[in-house]
Design a protein around this nucleic acid. Structure first.
Length: 955
RNA sequence: GCCGGGUUGAUGGAACAGGUAGACAUAAUGGUCUCAAAAACCAUUGCUCGAAAGGGCGUGCGGGUUCGAAUCCCGCACCCGGCACCA
């Protein structure tokens, strides 16, 4: 190592850096430097600190992986740490902690193959990870580090589940309410039992339970689910890719019907969209959530078919007069009831498909549609098929008889599973109409070059602007109306006739909440002998995860759709069966044997950081209010800054918002949104080298020569990819610690580029940040003696100005999380000091060290202490720029004549108005310009534009 | 197809709010130190014409607004991400 070979004893080099870093990490731990006091409860502290404005800085907590970290993992943790340290130095009480999201698949899969209990694996991984993260010098409050697998933690996950189970959504008040208030409504008769003639009092316990299940926010149901035999469990929609494979493991996913737990997230669809306007999130994430929730506005319209009424959903009620046929999804329940006995007279032979009766044609088509997988259906979007039912629906607007078809381009799962087809103005309907020789009626004013003879059209005419034509009956006319107005008019008309109403439809489905896994939170639910689910009383929580012989949820073939889930907990009969007294005397019960999905803990963990030792409540409301409550600029409240990857856009981030809103409605928390500001850090990428077979080879053994890349002599290709074990391109942080130290790694990761952009790791570039620290050290420390070598003299004018401009820019950059810019500015200042080749003035040295402190805290602490300060730099004040230091900076002076800028001259911005006028008047070109004018006024617009407004003297 | 984000040297990127484009870093080239190497330090480094002084061009492409545009407006191309037979 460099400094050992020469006489310089105190040069900043790798082993010296390590010595300094470990020393300060121990000091911080011993002093509890990063402990943030609560206003009340177990974790109270220094009242002066509590009184400061608070900030809650949060990372998406990690899954404790056993394979160790690579340099990509801590990017976000470094960023929040830098920001948290900056906030502490600018007078805030900062809560920053890191827990572990420790339930989940890898430990369970490891258990299946090795028999090692997942708890053992997971706790071991947590220990390893804590050590690795500690080496980065992260300033976390160690008392608040929670883990989702700790029964003291998941007791409250189960408690929240019970709160959700015991509530329903009141759409009139637009909030969740306790289920007892709904029961009271049924009992008093204020609300009648849906889909039943019988009053509440006449229903048996099982029937009552089924009725309540229609309202509960957590409810068991028999609806179709995503069954993934490969993982041995059912999955939420959000966990299934558009290709119908599992996001994790990429196994096939099938539709199946099993009784499972669901969360009624759809009740919150509107609020989940609306409240996005109150949070400071990246537009792309808001977009993804809006997309996923998928609200569309339109109308439901009734089309009478004989005795039946078919409800269709449309976003274009304005085109109702253009409807020429009606289509039902093949599996639509009303299909069987409307089929005509025989083909009506004059039926187009093309519609019969050669079948003797409509019933035959429909059954044949239904069979064909059922046999085609969803994937096939999507792949054949161009080719539209269907079958005529022989029935006709009446268009409520103009009384036309519209033939009713079934076709698989209409999906049962969206809207009402039935549509009115307007082939003139919908691409799919147009294709179907052409294939089936159906009429196409135009009802919109056409653009240039389009004939009103629809038989000549090659595609549908689709527009959101323009006006409606050919749309009137005796009581309503849409002709000439703008589309938006026509929608309102026809919807109002339909409502007045009782033939329809405005309606919104959502893409969002309820959240499937149970999993057939071992390594998750058990449900706090038992079933009585009738099969009615009961929540366990709070006194029986937590329901601890029992031991089992076999952790495996599956023994089947991933491609076999006909298997059924097996919950590992069901194998422990001693645990499953129990006798309890839930108020009606001792009864036999069976436990729920599914576990919660691994999203459960992460839906609320940030609340537990606030009050981790509370054994009487999830969180003390006063403490929650203190850290999370609504405040100025944050109407919904929430964490001040949340940093994590964008891959959770519609998973964790949506689920957590949902739970937050339920807890808010029930009065358990004061924030309706969990995370006020969200920031997505980019991914650290790395080169992937592949051999001729396309297999990744170890990146650190690849050599570059003559512009080509070789692995053990064989040529390989290079591409950019995610850093990871499977691509053999990981870089361990330990290697960087050993070569340069943690401060250098922190600086490098922050200097690579903007935090939210993915960028490539370049090991050879890391040394650049090490050089910065070396130069800072050399500028301040005598390397022979290790003593600080600064001068007490005042800085010269140029240095002073640069210093204050740097403070200003660094402060702004830090505030906006633009740490790369902050580092560049600090480097620029330090380069200036290096070039001066003179002792650095103390005031400049201290300011430099303070600015560096959030980014490279260890070296900053060391220098701060050598500069003679006893208090840790964490508690020091971040420098404040002297605004007047900007004096003398060059600015432009624009000369306006009659409100138009005619010329610009360069001046210093500390000149007075009079000087400006005389400069303006002394300039030959300006004189020409303003000849015949008089100077009206001088406008000084910060920072660097000064206008001299000149007005024509005469007239 | 729809929606969102983007395009600046060899590379990662900087430029507050329209005001010296390319900060800062890497790489590269030359040099200092060294027996040598590493480390460290110094100098050069957008393209181009020129010996130099100095000039011309330049932020994906084409227009526009402005005294002045990487930045604002219109049109286009390409890249990344999300959604998609969603009525």
């Amino acid at each position: 190592m460099g400094y050992l070979n020469d006489e310089r004893q105190f040069a900043y080099a790798a082993c010296f850096a390590e010595e300094i870093e470990l020393k300060w990490q121990d000091r911080w731990a011993a002093d509890g430097t990063f402990r943030a006091p609560n206003p009340v409860g177990d974790l109270i502290g220094d009242p002066a600190l509590t009184a400061k404005p608070k900030k809650f800085i949060l990372d998406m907590f990690p899954y404790p992986s056993g394979s160790g970290l690579h340099v990509g993992h801590p990017l976000g943790y470094i960023a929040t740490d830098v920001y948290a340290r900056f906030l502490r130095m600018t007078g805030h009480n900062v809560l920053h902690a890191l827990g572990f999201d420790a339930f989940g698949l890898p430990a369970e899969q490891y258990a299946v193959t090795t028999g090692t209990h997942p708890r053992v694996t997971t706790l071991g991984a947590i220990t390893t990870m804590r050590e690795q993260l500690r080496r980065l010098g992260l300033g976390h409050d160690d008392r608040r580090s929670v883990s989702t697998i700790d029964p003291k933690f998941y007791k409250w996950t189960q408690w929240i589940f019970i709160q959700i189970f015991n509530s329903w959504y009141d759409h009139d008040q637009d909030r969740a309410r306790p289920i007892n208030e709904l029961i009271a409504q049924f009992e008093s008769g204020e609300r009648s039992v849906p889909d039943s003639d019988r009053p509440w009092g006449k229903l048996g316990p099982l029937q009552r339970a089924e009725v309540l299940n229609l309202f509960r926010l957590a409810y068991p149901s028999d609806s179709p689910v995503n069954w993934c035999p490969g993982l041995g469990t059912v999955l939420a929609n959000e966990e299934v890719t558009p290709e119908r494979r599992s996001e994790r493991g990429n196994y096939p996913v099938f539709k199946a019907r099993f009784r499972q737990w669901n969360m009624r997230i759809t009740a919150y669809a509107d609020r989940l969209i609306a409240d996005l306007d109150h949070v400071d999130w990246p537009e792309s994430i808001k977009m993804q959530q809006r997309n996923w929730i998928g609200r569309s506005n339109g109308a439901q319209v009734s089309f009478p078919v004989g005795e039946e009424e078919i409800e269709v959903y449309t976003t274009r009620p304005d085109t109702l007069f253009g409807a020429t046929y009606v289509v039902l999804a093949p599996e639509h329940p009303q299909v069987a009831r409307i089929i005509a006995g025989s083909w009506p007279d004059g039926t187009n032979p093309a519609w019969t498909g050669g079948h003797g009766t409509p019933a035959e044609a429909v059954v044949a088509y239904q069979a064909q549609a059922a046999s085609r997988s969803e994937l096939d259906r999507q792949a054949e979007t161009r080719h539209k098929t269907g079958a005529f039912t022989g029935a006709f629906a009446t268009n409520p607007a103009n009384g036309d008889a519209l033939p009713v078809f079934i076709a698989d381009y209409v999906l049962m799962g969206y809207g009402t599973g039935a549509i009115m087809a307007v082939p003139a103005h919908d691409e799919r309907d147009f294709e179907f109409a052409r294939a089936q020789e159906l009429p196409i009626n135009n009802v919109l004013a056409l653009g240039e070059g389009r004939s009103d003879d629809t038989s000549t059209w090659e595609r549908a005419f689709i527009t959101q602007g323009g006006t409606v034509v050919n749309s009137s009956n005796t009581t309503v006319s849409l002709d000439g109306l703008e589309i938006a107005e026509a929608k309102r008019r026809i919807t109002a008309w339909l409502e007045s006739k009782g033939m329809g109403e405005g309606a919104a439809t959502f893409r969002l489905r309820d959240w499937l909440f149970s999993r057939q896994r071992y390594w998750g939170e058990p449900f706090p639910i038992v079933y009585d002998e009738d099969g009615v689910a009961h929540a366990l009383p709070e006194s029986m929580l937590p329901v601890e995860l029992p031991e089992v012989e076999d952790y495996s949820p599956r023994t089947f073939d991933p491609d076999d759709a006909d298997t059924t889930p097996v919950a590992p907990l069901s194998r422990n009969e001693d645990w499953v069966n129990l006798t309890l007294d839930l108020g009606d005397g001792p009864q036999r019960y069976r436990r729920e044997t599914n576990t919660m999905p691994n999203w459960a803990g992460s839906c609320w963990y940030e609340l537990r950081y606030l009050d981790p030792t509370n054994d009487r409540a999830m969180v003390n409301p006063q403490i929650e209010q203190h850290w999370m409550g609504p405040r100025e600029g944050m109407p919904a409240g929430g964490v001040d800054l949340y940093v994590g990857g964008a891959e959770h856009a519609v998973l964790h981030l949506l689920y957590a918002r949902f739970w937050s809103k339920v807890l808010f409605d029930l009065g358990h928390v004061s924030s309706a949104e969990p995370f006020h500001k969200l920031y997505n850090q980019g991914m650290i990428q790395a080169y992937v080298y592949r051999d001729s077979r396309g297999i990744a080879v170890a990146a650190d053994e690849v050599q570059e020569r003559d512009g080509g890349f070789y692995f053990h002599g064989k040529p390989v290709t290079r591409a950019m990819g995610k850093m990871g074990k499977s691509l053999k391109n990981t870089v361990a942080p330990d290697a960087i610690f050993a070569e340069f130290g943690a401060d250098t790694l922190r600086l490098y990761e922050m200097a690579m580029g903007p935090l939210d952009v993915s960028r490539p790791w370049e090991s050879r570039a890391v040394v650049g940040q090490h050089r910065l620290l070396q130069r800072v050290w050399r500028n301040l420390v005598d390397e022979m003696t290790g003593k600080i070598a600064v001068t007490e003299a005042e800085p010269d004018e140029a240095t002073y100005r640069l210093l204050h401009r740097t403070i200003d820019e660094v402060t702004r950059s830090m505030r906006d999380l633009r740490f790369n810019t902050a580092i560049a500015k600090i480097t620029e200042l330090n380069n200036h000091l290096t070039k001066a080749r003179e002792p650095v003035p103390r005031s400049v040295a201290e300011t430099l060290v303070l600015m560096l402190a959030p980014l490279a805290p260890h070296i900053a602490e060391e220098l701060w202490s050598r500069l003679g300060h006893e208090v840790t730099i964490v508690r020091a004040h971040f420098p404040v720029a002297d605004a007047s230091a900007n004096r003398g900076a060059q600015v432009s002076c624009a000369i306006q004549v009659d409100g138009k800028v005619r010329a610009v001259i360069e001046v210093d911005n500390d000149v007075t108005e009079d000087t400006l006028k005389s400069i303006a008047l002394g300039n030959e070109r300006i004189q020409q310009l303003i000849e015949g004018h008089k100077i009206n006024r001088v406008i000084v617009r910060p920072p660097n534009l000064v206008n001299v407004a000149v007005r024509r003297k005469y007239g």
